Simulated assay, not measured.
Amino acid sequence: MSSIKSDKKVAVITGGATGIGKETARLLVADGVHVVLSGRRADVGARAVEELTKDGGSASFVVADMDSPESIKALFDSVLADYGRLDHAVNNAGLAHETAAIADADPVKFQEMLSTNVMGLFLCLQREIQEMLAGGHGGTIVNLASIAGLNGIPWSGPYAATKHAVVGLTKTAGLEYSSQGVRVNAVAPGAIKTDIIANAITLGQYDEDTITAMHPIGRMGLPREIAAGIHWLLSDESSFVAGTVLNIDGGFQAK
């Protein structure tokens, strides 16, 4: 791809080809932002780009694996080479593949989640901040935390640990960089109707009635409902918000 460098704002969304990531991309594309989606599956990414651009929107896809520092570096090198700027970022990619009590949890799976959910997000966050500062125009970043990053969640201890780390990184980055024009926040979704949750219910890893009962609103959330919160945090409408974790959880945290 040849360099497009222009005044059009640019956003990166990791894990952006499906679910919450794609719904967030849809809102940003409607704002006239060029959105770079990343993920591990080129075919899924291509379909997402086709969907997002069919009405004149601007989007592209870069294959990237959040488990690989080299792949993360290549993603941002590509974005800066092609577009010359970075204005918004959503660190959405993550793993959630453990459903056991801590004494029975698989250390290998825990390590995989740490590598992607914590170190991968950290490396993205670090590079995003660097580029936004270097660009001289600031920017906004939203990290995907979880209700599991604010509470203990039975049978999800390793996952909860990684999301607690995301909350810590978010709050600290918010303190360190908001005065320099880079606002870092997070969203903490409850259970959301994504392919991951649907597959887990189908496999019997989760019980849908139990998950629904966790939320006082009486249902699971939809990806577009989380995307709306992310979109607000990325926008100038939230210009006085920094280092905050926005709960979008159907009342879970209010219990």
Results as ranks from 00 to 15, higher is better:
159 Y>S: 06
160 A>G: 14
162 T>Q: 08
164 H>I: 06
164 H>W: 15
165 A>F: 07
165 A>H: 08
165 A>Y: 12
166 V>Y: 03
166 V>C: 03
167 V>W: 12
167 V>F: 00
167 V>M: 08
168 G>V: 11
168 G>F: 11
168 G>N: 11
168 G>K: 08
169 L>R: 10
169 L>T: 10
169 L>F: 13
169 L>S: 12
170 T>E: 07
170 T>N: 01
170 T>V: 03
170 T>A: 00
171 K>P: 01
171 K>F: 04
171 K>I: 07
171 K>L: 13
171 K>N: 03
171 K>G: 08
172 T>V: 13
172 T>Q: 15
172 T>I: 07
172 T>D: 14
172 T>H: 15
173 A>Y: 06
173 A>F: 09
173 A>H: 10
173 A>T: 10
174 G>D: 02
174 G>M: 06
174 G>T: 01
175 L>F: 12
175 L>V: 10
175 L>C: 09
175 L>E: 15
176 E>F: 06
176 E>G: 04
178 S>M: 14
180 Q>N: 10
180 Q>G: 01
180 Q>M: 12
181 G>K: 06
182 V>R: 09
182 V>C: 00
182 V>P: 09
183 R>H: 14
183 R>C: 12
183 R>V: 07
183 R>P: 12
183 R>I: 03
184 V>G: 05
184 V>K: 06
185 N>I: 00
185 N>G: 00
185 N>T: 01
186 A>W: 00
186 A>G: 05
186 A>E: 05
186 A>M: 01
187 V>A: 03
187 V>L: 04
188 A>D: 05
188 A>Y: 08
188 A>R: 00
189 P>F: 08
191 A>M: 13
191 A>I: 10
191 A>V: 14
191 A>L: 05
192 I>L: 07
192 I>C: 02
193 K>M: 14
194 T>F: 02
194 T>K: 03
195 D>C: 06
195 D>G: 12
196 I>F: 15
196 I>E: 14
196 I>C: 10
196 I>Y: 03
196 I>W: 10
197 I>N: 11
198 A>H: 09
198 A>Q: 13
198 A>T: 12
198 A>C: 11
199 N>E: 15
199 N>T: 12
199 N>I: 05
199 N>L: 13
199 N>V: 12
200 A>E: 09
201 I>K: 13
202 T>H: 15
203 L>F: 11
203 L>V: 05
203 L>H: 11
204 G>C: 07
205 Q>N: 15
206 Y>E: 13
207 D>K: 13
207 D>H: 08
208 E>D: 06
208 E>K: 14
208 E>P: 04
209 D>W: 08
209 D>G: 07
209 D>V: 15
210 T>D: 06
210 T>V: 14
210 T>Q: 05
211 I>K: 02
212 T>I: 15
212 T>V: 14
212 T>F: 02
213 A>P: 07
214 M>S: 12
214 M>E: 11
214 M>T: 15
214 M>W: 05
214 M>I: 10
214 M>F: 10
215 H>E: 00
215 H>V: 03
216 P>L: 08
217 I>L: 11
217 I>Q: 02
217 I>K: 06
217 I>E: 09
218 G>W: 01
218 G>P: 13
219 R>E: 08
219 R>M: 04
219 R>F: 00
